[in-house]
């Protein structure tokens, strides 16, 4: 089952990259995809049932829009800071605990945090994220208030990856 899923994913990527439906190309692509997925079936993950739940895909699309909106907001924020002559920054590295378990979910969360307003993931140790924040000013009790960085994404990523 894992081999079939990863063959399918790799074959779709091949078709998008070559952009031709010539039978020779398709056959070559299928053979290559099959060999690669025989060697490393880990592409599909441990539990294959996850690939067949439509709820995950709906959440993924909603999450994409939410993420793009956050990214535009973060860029306006960066633009303001860069242009203003006084450089209003007050940086620091804070610690945030996450409730996500799987590695894929943690990777997605780290990437999302890096691309959203004023935060940059420095390291992940177990379930703790170390995050460089460009403006810690509004975060007096460092342990409690910083959770808001991750919470917005967690509720989507939990459904998509867990």
């Amino acid at each position: 089952m894992r081999v079939i899923i990863s063959t399918f994913v790799l074959f779709v990527i091949w078709v998008i990259l070559t952009q031709s439906f010539d039978p020779q190309e398709l056959i070559t692509g299928f053979i290559v995809a099959f060999i690669v997925s025989m060697i490393s079936p880990a592409i599909a993950g441990e539990k294959t049932g996850k690939w067949f739940q439509p709820k995950r895909y709906i959440y993924l699309i909603v999450y994409l829009f939410y993420f793009i909106w956050q990214m535009i907001k973060s860029n306006i924020d960066v633009a303001k800071r860069v242009i203003s002559p006084k450089l209003p920054i007050k940086p620091g590295i804070v610690k945030v605990k996450t409730k996500l378990k799987t590695n894929a979910a943690k990777l997605a969360l780290a990437n999302s945090i890096t691309l959203t307003p004023g935060t940059l993931t420095v390291d992940i140790v177990g379930d703790e994220f170390y995050i460089h924040w460009i403006d810690v000013g509004n975060c007096d009790d460092v342990h409690r208030n910083c959770q808001e960085i991750a919470e917005g994404f967690e509720k989507y990523l939990e459904v998509i990856f867990e």
Binding site: V78, R81, V82, L87, I89, P91, L120
Partner: peptide, 23 residues
């Protein structure tokens, strides 16, 4: 252009990275 300007203007590595990556 703004990202590259941020890489020049920000005071330390981590802040430069913030501007550089996002923008």
């Amino acid at each position: 252009f703004l990202g590259a300007l941020g890489v020049i203007r920000m005071p330390d590595v981590y802040n430069r990275m913030q501007a550089g990556t996002k923008a």
